[in-house]
Amino acid sequence: MVPPQYYLLLAAAIFCIGLFGILTRRNALLFLMSVELMLNAANINLVAFSVYWGNVTGQTLSLFTMALAAAEVAIGIGIILTLYRNFGDVDVTDAASMRW
């Protein structure tokens, strides 16, 4: 069996790739993909440690996480669509009529 710490490392690496994407990409759709990576990193942890602890709690929660991710993307795409209609682009830095 693969030792559990390898899964932790894999998950942490994917999480960091997602975080890097969020910090560097200006395209709202790529932002969504990066968030998706971070959520899937959590899923890897949940599934791997579900096996380690011998219960299915983690596996079940990972199914919930996928459903939540899908719902989040649906809402996100809707908001990005209105962004495109109002600002003519999906660049998140374009929407800056209020100061941060």
Binding site: A11, F15, L68
Partner: peptide
């Protein structure tokens, strides 16, 4: 939400329960 979910997965990894 992604950070929060990852945090939950780490707590689960350490304790085996939710």
């Amino acid at each position: 939400a992604a950070v929060f979910t990852f945090g939950i997965s780490l707590v689960y990894a350490a304790t085996g329960s939710l």
